[in-house]
Amino acid sequence: MLIQVLNGIAYGGLLYLLAVGLVLIFGLREIVNFAHGALFMLGSYIGFSIAAVFNFWLGLAGSLVAMTVIGIFLDAAVLRPLRKHDHMVTVLVTFGILLVLEAFATAVWGKSFRSMSAPDLLSGTVQIAGEPFPVYRLFVIGVSLCVAAGLTAWLRFSRVGLYVRASSVDPTTTAILGVDTDRLSLIVVGLGTGLAGLSGVVAAPLMALSPTMGNYILIESFIVVVVGGLGSFSGALAAALLIGQIHNFGAIYLPWASTMLPFLLMVGVLIWRPTGFAGKRT
């Protein structure tokens, strides 16, 4: 039982890493980023390639850095020029980016599944409540907790964090008050994309690498973002943990409906409150 809960937390933690990037980008640019799953996938492959030559840890760091740079480029080259467009059109453009990235990954790494193993330090299991539990999953939980703590501190105590929070409540007013939202957006989209890269590498030992590996988890992290309330950071954490548990226990007790449950939850939440549990904006 406890093992199952931990499994759910590990998956929820991964979802959180992705979802929080979506929340960051939504807060500043008011778009849901369909390319986020593909960025996760790209981060995975970059980590995989670096790890093949050096080691897992360099792969992790390298992917984080590379994806942050890609995120900054993405904001400057695509999202900023489109900021005056209808947000929904920009959302579709991110879908276009997803298609381009998938084709890119197919060209570079091929269609066949790749796998990446956990570093020696984190392989093996530990005994928890008398049952074996993979060390690597504890690592996943640890990483997401660290990110959650770091992000919360950053949002609460730094000046930039204050601006980000203000902007995700009301971007227009924040811009009027003289905050340079374009620069802020570079930081935020860079950070969000970097986190997608980080979670890609963290997830890599748990799943098979393929150009479409990001699609399913993208939709689940959409669910997290929506259920948590568009633009809400704490809501995303709570929702990620909830969806993680649903994902896990659903697979055990309601296998025929487990993949559908999160969607039904999302439909219910949106109809009941279009802004989600904690959100204020649509």
């Binding site: 929904m88 959302v91 559908m260 439909v267 949106l270 279009p274």
Partner: peptide, 23 residues
């Protein structure tokens, strides 16, 4: 329900049906 919420809602409804056909 407008905007992003609408896009997400239709996505969820569609995927729920997809899951039925899939499973």
């Amino acid at each position: 329900i407008p905007g992003v919420a609408h896009a997400m809602l239709t996505l969820a409804v569609g995927q729920a049906l997809y899951e039925v056909a899939f499973k």
